[in-house]
Simulated assay, not measured.
Amino acid sequence: MTELAREAASGLDAGSGGGQAMLDRLVALLDLEKIEENIFRGVSPAHSPVRVFGGQVAGQALVAAGRTVPEERRVHSLHAYFIRGGDPSVPIVYEVDRIRDGRSFTTRRVVAIQHGKAIFSLSASFQKDEPGIEHAEEMPDVPRPDSLPTLMERAEGYFGRIGHHDRPRPIDLRYVNDPPWVTRDSGDRPARNQVWMRADGVLPDQQLLHVCVLTYASDMTLLDSVLARHGVYWDLDKVLGASLDHALWFHRPFRADEWFLYDSASPTASGARGLATGRFFAEDGTLIATVVQEGLLRIV
């Protein structure tokens, strides 16, 4: 295990400080160890939940893919399946398959392996910069992030009931409207969720790293838009959930250590599965990415 990986494994947990120190540990977590050509190894935080956080394995897999692609080609989309729950107590091996190296596009497939079995698969496409037609949806009219309370301030009084919100995080997250654990007890239950996010510190000037941090953050709060519609919430109700698949499209360059609005909604839920879509807007209103995820959601 590398020194960076050892630091990440021991530090990115509930006992760590927040802000830049926490963000530096996330960066270290994403700095995979190369153990052979097209083969990389990553670790999980020492104090992790029962399963590896989906955003972590997605971010690490994208790092593995990006390490085999020229820097001038930017990732523009990824499609992933969560196959098995990851074991946070052992390293994850990422095997990269160099599917295609074309004149404009590069395609990579990554399989994450633990205990000899695939736990996650990802396909990612990279493209060299090209001019072309351009348009984008406008950002919703919402309060600015600096006018909103932090996640811990929002959750004050709920600690012990939704204890995972009192942990330091590498992502500064601020709800635009009442969070789902508040609307759960009211009659207003829109299948929509809006939060401002940013990396809680300063990131190095590596575009792939910023994309991987946004990928990490994209698995946070997305399925909340499904649960909010039905007045249930993690830890407060008997909800069993897991990400099933995840797709991201990156439209324009951005910095993940600057504010972006995560506007998510749920168009449907059925068969113990819920679908959620999300749009990411930079603070100046630029649409930077789009996400779609289906999750397993069992109310027991």
Rank of each mutant, 00 (worst) to 15 (best):
I119M: 00
I119P: 00
F120L: 04
F120A: 04
S121M: 09
S121A: 06
L122A: 02
L122E: 00
S123H: 07
S123F: 02
A124K: 06
A124Y: 02
S125Q: 03
S125Y: 05
F126M: 07
F126R: 01
F126L: 05
Q127P: 01
Q127N: 03
Q127R: 12
Q127I: 08
K128G: 15
K128P: 04
D129M: 10
D129A: 14
D129C: 06
D129H: 11
E130Y: 11
E130C: 10
E130H: 13
P131E: 12
P131A: 09
P131Y: 12
P131I: 11
G132L: 12
G132A: 04
I133R: 15
I133S: 13
I133F: 15
I133G: 13
I133W: 15
I133V: 15
E134K: 14
E134S: 15
E134G: 06
H135G: 06
A136V: 05
A136F: 12
E137Y: 15
E137T: 13
E137P: 08
E137F: 15
E137R: 15
E137H: 15
E138M: 10
E138F: 13
E138S: 14
E138Y: 14
E138K: 14
M139T: 01
P140N: 10
P140R: 09
D141L: 13
D141I: 10
V142G: 07
V142P: 05
V142Q: 08
V142M: 04
V142S: 05
P143C: 09
R144D: 06
R144H: 12
R144G: 11
R144F: 08
P145G: 04
P145F: 04
P145M: 04
P145T: 04
P145W: 10
P145K: 02
D146A: 12
D146T: 10
S147A: 11
S147L: 10
S147D: 13
L148N: 01
L148P: 06
L148A: 03
L148Q: 06
P149T: 03
P149W: 01
P149L: 00
P149G: 03
P149E: 00
P149C: 05
T150M: 10
T150K: 06
L151Q: 08
M152T: 13
M152K: 14
E153K: 11
R154N: 13
R154V: 11
A155H: 03
A155Y: 02
E156G: 08
G157W: 03
G157E: 04
G157S: 09
Y158I: 01
Y158D: 00
Y158Q: 00
F159D: 12
F159E: 13
